[in-house]
Design a protein around this nucleic acid. Structure first.
Length: 590
RNA sequence: GGAGACGUAGCUCAAUUGGUUAGAGCACUUGCCUGUCACGCAAGAGGUCGAGGGUUCGAGUCCCUUCGUCUUCGCCA
């Protein structure tokens, strides 16, 4: 084959007159009898090539055999398009008059058209992912992702970080997400786990002295999938020694600023807003608040003590709460739109969604009749209600009110276009509680993970009112999406032991599961902290994609399958035997 | 584990209340065409209506089961 002299995105009018060779795929062709045009594509772009019966009959004849997606090597001369310039193409001022053509490979009629113009069922796209990825829009996503990763690596390289790899075959720890397990052949009946994150290893690298660690690394969690969740995903994993929260958050701001500048040419303004976790929950009903608009949650529980409306009164008496949001100008929403908001509230556990419309001629609401005029005026006043507004109520247990009203708030924001979809808002949610109580078992669980430093002055504080202890943690939130999170870590063995105790992990169990970490902390562990970003999610938000799958080359379906390779799959009895495994048929449910 | 949507030609979709031979656009094949660029014109071929079962004189359409994809609650330290 003749090797290309240029790519398909390269030639300009300056090249007119040059004899060149192009290699690429046939994107499209237009036959006009004596002259035939082909758009030749590679990942660098598109060039129109021309076959003319009068100029080179042999090439023109071969060109007749060419079909969509054939792979060609063509030789010819760059010529001007004259009047027929195509200003939609970067190479639109020129074309290549072909003198010889070689068909490097033929192509079956593809199962779907390889263009951006045709919508194709995702199932089929995933089965023929290698063809889907040939589509220009997908190529752009991955060229962008490459640019993103490059800007990230560049930042860390410039700032003296060191990239160190950590194991993929590691130890299972049942805390947190479900592990993917890998059976060991050598150790019959034992298993490795794929890492949910390299958390412990990066902390141990700090103990080793590899200050300023970074790794772009695959992580695995065997949990149900979502549009923004894949079972294997990529983290930008970072850890630093001799730092405090301010140093880390400053580093994150620098990194994010560099990323946005280099990938989208957007100037990010600093510093990022910092909002304590409890305030985020209180005002926005979320630990990842969308801060591009206000419409905060307002607590009106105080006003419910003496009302006749038993539903609200009893909720407050039983320790629940009533909160409202004021959708300014929302009185114009239709009954159907409000019903949709109620459906959202119910999805998140609310019993209903009470509302008051403040119309010109008075209040319209299914619930005002249960209140005195004085009471309702107090509620409206507290909500800052004015003519034209819609007040929405969330009532129930704290977490239900926050979840449901927080989601209703997001939906109203979207519905009423309260923010510019092209804006970016950056914030840190800091100081999350250290523990939360499991509603089922009553046991304490780590909100972040068990290695997070509590915000305490003295270890004795952990013996009193443990649920109110906060952690030295931080999440990066962009437009209501959690993009990264981390914390200052515990570097003292006594504190780490204490935390394990509080989590109900006994000394023996702690020794068995995390002994190497506690040991390491006792050998001169420096104060350290770090965080991890979800690279796929960051890429998704920068590209404004609806699904993570569009920036992952070979993603899995909702049932965690690869439709192309057909993984997972059964294995030979021999393989199972080597691993000392036996498959027990799960009963088919009737 | 729960809720919802979808599945008809290679692709994207249509098909009235259950009723004649399941249609359209694109793609594909063939022919024509010397300035198109998502070219155009003409003709042609192309269907296990996801699969299985049931109701019915008759099922793409109704019922049951099942498979797959997507969205979502739970789950994701």
């Amino acid at each position: 084959m003749k090797i290309r002299t240029n790519t398909c995105g390269q030639l300009r009018k300056e090249n007119i007159g040059e004899e060149i060779v192009l290699n690429g795929w046939v994107e499209n062709s237009r036959d006009h009898g004596g002259v035939r045009f082909i758009d030749l594509r590679d990942r660098f772009g598109l060039t129109q090539i021309k076959f003319n019966e009068d100029i080179n009959k042999e090439a023109w004849e071969i060109a007749h055999k060419v079909r969509s997606q054939f792979v060609l090597s063509v030789t010819g001369t760059v010529i001007s398009r004259g009047e027929a310039v195509n200003d939609k193409m970067l190479t639109g001022e020129i074309e290549v008059e072909i003198s010889s053509i070689e068909i490097l490979n033929e192509c079956e009629t593809p199962p779907f058209e390889i263009t951006d113009y045709v919508n194709v069922n995702e199932e089929l796209r995933l089965k023929y992912r290698y063809l889907d990825l040939r589509r220009p829009a997908m190529q752009e996503n991955f060229l962008f992702r490459n640019k993103l990763v490059h800007s990230i690596r560049e930042y860390f390289y410039q700032n003296d970080f060191i990239e160190v790899e950590t194991p993929v075959l590691t130890k299972s720890t049942p805390e947190g997400a479900r592990d993917y397990l890998v059976p060991s052949r050598v150790h019959s009946g034992e298993f490795y786990a794929l890492p949910q994150s390299p958390q412990l290893f990066k902390q141990l690298l700090m103990v080793s002295g590899f200050d300023k660690y970074i790794q772009i690394v695959k992580c695995f969690r065997d949990e149900d999938l979502r549009a923004d969740r894949q079972p294997e995903f990529t983290q930008i994993d970072i850890e630093m020694s001799f730092v405090d929260k301010d140093i880390i958050l400053n580093m994150v701001e620098e990194l994010v600023t560099a990323i946005f500048k280099e990938t989208l040419n957007i100037e990010v303004s600093r510093p990022f807003q910092r909002i304590p976790f409890l305030e985020a929950m209180d005002k926005y009903g979320s630990d990842k608040p969308e801060l591009r608009f206000g419409m905060q949650l307002i607590n009106v529980s105080e006003l419910m003590h003496n009302v006749d409306f038993k539903v609200f009164r009893s909720i407050v008496e039983e320790g629940g709460m009533v909160k409202v949001i004021n959708a300014k100008g929302g009185a114009s929403l239709t009954r159907k739109e409000i019903d949709n908001l109620e459906a959202t509230a119910k999805t998140y556990g609310a019993r209903g969604l009470a509302w008051i419309k403040i119309n010109e001629d008075g209040l319209q609401s299914p619930i005002v009749k249960f209140f005195s005029e004085e009471q309702i005026n107090a509620i409206v006043a507290k909500a800052g209600g004015e003519v034209g507004d819609l007040i929405l109520f969330g009532a129930g247990k704290e977490n239900v009110v926050h979840d449901s009203l927080g989601q209703v708030r997001l939906q109203v924001g979207k519905l009423m276009k309260l923010y510019d979809a092209n804006d970016y808002h950056f914030s840190f949610v800091v100081d999350a509680p250290l523990f939360e109580k499991d509603s089922q078992t009553g046991r304490l669980n780590s909100v972040h993970h068990p290695f997070t430093m509590p915000l305490i002055n003295d270890i004795s504080e952990l013996d009193t009112d443990i649920e109110s202890v906060l952690s030295d943690s931080y999440d990066l939130v962009i437009n209501g999406c959690e993009i990264g999170g981390g914390s200052i870590r515990i570097h003292k063995p006594d504190i780490q032991q204490k935390i394990f105790e509080l989590l109900g992990i006994g000394k023996e169990e702690a020794e068995q599961k995390f002994g190497f970490l506690v040991d390491a902390l006792s050998y001169g562990a420096p104060p350290h902290g770090g965080l991890a970003f979800g690279l796929d999610r960051l890429c998704m938000i920068l590209l404004k994609l609806d699904s993570l799958r569009d920036c992952i080359a070979f993603p899995k379906t909702q049932k965690a399958a690869c439709l192309m390779s057909e993984a997972p799959s059964k294995v030979d009895a021999e393989q199972l035997k080597e691993l000392s495994l036996k498959i027990e048929q799960v009963k088919v449910k009737k």
